[in-house]
């Protein structure tokens, strides 16, 4: 289908004797918010790691904008239009916040490392541009006042937002967000939901792994359920929350439905 930005066909991956993924197929529609849910250990992060080429799948194909990405290296993905965040936030404490965000724009500017040694062109102008974009993105997530803070001075919720701001720097079509609400309080989660909808509004596609059912049910258009490495169900939030299979395996407990 033409309006699917990401299509995975029969992905399998095993670690030793454990089958983390078995013939898993799914698709993500362009300019949508799609959620991938499943109990702990279902293989959600493995799916993300395979999309971002950190793992190589044992079999199966992945297409991004109709292009097979199996042979791409992880560092080529932002160039292609895929960027991601991590479940355990990874920011760089040896730089301040705005510099951290600027790292997200690495794909812009010259790709020759040599040039930066000899500064044969004006890397100053390039940096000014990156800086401006970084400030814009910080403003977008509401952290512009903290631009010069050290990473250690930020709260957990701010770190999450910073990672999303950095993810936006490469101007990627597809954002893979790995549990962005983990560790956030209800107020912060609400703000996050608003932010994600805002990101969708500017034309991005969001593929999200999340445990917070409340968030998933409110923002996503499509939910894919993964159970023990296998496809279980897909559908709209209301379909998923009434799907007997899903309820049996995962949403059985009332507190998850919220």
């Amino acid at each position: 289908m033409a309006d699917n930005i990401l299509i995975a066909k029969n992905i399998s991956k095993s670690f030793g004797g454990i089958h983390a993924l078995k013939n898993f197929s799914f698709s993500v529609k362009k300019n949508s918010i799609t959620a991938l849910i499943g109990p702990n250990g279902a293989g959600k992060t493995t799916v993300f790691n395979i999309i971002s080429r950190i793992y190589q799948q044992d079999s199966g194909e992945i297409f991004f904008q109709n292009k097979d990405i199996t042979n791409f290296a992880p560092h080529q993905l932002p160039q292609l239009g895929i960027s991601r965040t991590f479940q355990n936030i990874v920011l760089f404490p040896n730089m301040n916040l705005v510099e951290n965000i600027m790292v997200g724009g690495h794909i812009y500017g010259s790709s020759s490392i040599f040039k930066y040694l000899f500064a044969v062109f004006s890397s100053k102008r390039e940096d000014e541009l990156l800086f401006k974009r970084a400030m814009n993105n910080l403003e977008f997530v509401g952290l512009q006042k903290l631009a010069y803070s050290e990473i250690s001075e930020l709260t957990f919720g701010q770190l999450r937002l910073a990672e999303i701001a950095r993810c936006l720097m490469s101007d990627s079509e597809l954002l893979l967000l790995d549990e962005p609400a983990a560790g956030l309080n209800p107020k912060e989660t609400e703000d996050l939901a608003r932010l994600l909808l805002e990101i969708k509004k500017i034309g991005k596609t969001i593929f999200i792994v999340e445990h917070d059912m409340n968030l998933v049910m409110t923002i996503s258009e499509k939910i894919i359920v993964l159970n023990f490495g296998e496809f279980l169900a897909k559908g709209t939030p209301s379909e998923i929350s009434t799907n007997p299979q899903v309820i049996a395996s995962y949403l059985g407990d009332d507190q998850y439905i919220g």
Binding site: S52, P74, H75, H106, I107
Partner: peptide
């Protein structure tokens, strides 16, 4: 900045487009 980033976490640096 790329050097400082890969110092902390190579996987994260890679996913940001750093070779």
């Amino acid at each position: 900045r790329a050097l400082k980033a890969l110092h902390i976490n190579e996987l994260a640096a890679q996913s940001l487009g750093i070779n």
